[in-house]
Design a protein around this nucleic acid. Structure first.
Lengths: 188, 188
DNA sequence: ATTATTTTTTAACATTTGTAAAATGTTGCC
DNA sequence: GGCAACATTTTACAAATGTTAAAAAATAAT
């Protein structure tokens, strides 16, 4: 496990000693396309790092389903509210392709946070990076129109455009599929 | 300083020993209404906890200014990108009233993170709480219309409604001031 | 290959929200 | 009190997006 984690970006800032501690509680798992890895309204016991494949997080509303996150290899993947408040969350996470992931039990991770300074700071930085990315999105939404958000998405995530259904991208951008279709028809 | 921090919610989970370490690098400051405490495009060297007063974070666009955060007493207040990536940020933070704050130098805080396990985990939890709140807002925006977001804001932040200009609240909710005015006229 | 299923696009129309400008209300100051 | 500066509401119109339904295109299944 140790030599496998070594190659994943998110583990690279860690010393060998810390990496060994994490490797000791890590497990590699694979799941087929369509698997719902994280369920809304359940307290999910695991934390994942996506090694290969893509995933999306979504919430179900009354008459719509909204995708608000996409993950590619290297992404961390967990139920925010399970991880942070040990309670059931609001997001489902679906694997959009066959995926391989590193799985860590939250209970194991929390024990390491409480014992190991370096790992606690590693966990702090994970939360901080997610935070700044999420706030960036909130602000981008405010300043940019749907057409510009779409263009940014194409530029920044060329892989996802190819591999993800447009209906998911539409809700990610905050518009209906019809509007996204109009944008695509205009801007080409 | 120690006995003062003791009364602030965010410090309450800490042991006396950790609190003393933080108190040693904390300083109380006051600033009048209108002060821009954090400047976009500057690497800001401080982290603040708001003791008394209210504040807002905003970004300037070409022909608009968008408020995306409000803070009341107990809130943490810092330039995300200075804190997280040691670079200039995108938000200005303005004090909307005369405020008293606890000020900590980021360099002092980072030294504590690297030496003190409990404080590192305290910092991790701060980022996590901000993260979950920010993501909640992103999702609420997707599922709720402006009228419902306004009603939620009134219910959850009755103090802010009284003390903050409606133009700031409008941009916080993601609509123009005209639309907010229409909502207010309809829902009463 | 053909059919079935799902996704994406297009169309017509309704609704919401934005823009700009004027009218009204509020606050603070001399 | 009265004036100036600023905030909020209102109005009329324009633009953007949503809704519904259907057609076209793409994908998957037999």
């Amino acid at each position: 496990m140790y030599s496998q984690l070594k190659n994943i970006d998110i583990f690279k800032p860690l010393t060998n000693e810390a990496l060994e501690r994490l490797a000791a509680v890590s497990k590699q798992v694979e799941h087929p396309k369509g698997t719902i890895l994280i369920h809304a309204d359940k307290t999910e016991p695991h934390f994942y790092i996506l090694e290969r494949g893509i995933a999306r997080a979504y919430s179900d509303g009354e008459n719509q389903q909204i995708t608000f996150w996409f993950g590619q290899s290297g992404a961390v993947l967990f139920s925010f509210n399970s991880y942070i408040n040990n309670g059931p969350g609001y997001e489902n996470i679906e694997l959009l392709e066959h995926c391989s992931l590193i799985q860590i039990k939250l209970t194991d991770l929390f024990l390491l946070y409480d014992k190991h300074l370096e790992i606690a700071n590693w966990g702090r930085k994970i939360a901080e990076q997610e935070l700044i990315a999420t706030e960036r999105r909130l602000i981008d939404r405010a300043f940019k129109g749907a057409a510009e958000l779409y263009q940014d998405f194409v530029d920044q995530s060329p892989e996802l455009i190819k591999r993800v259904a447009l209906k998911h991208i539409a809700s990610y951008l905050g518009v209906t599929q019809v509007t996204l279709s109009r944008i695509r028809a205009t801007h080409k």
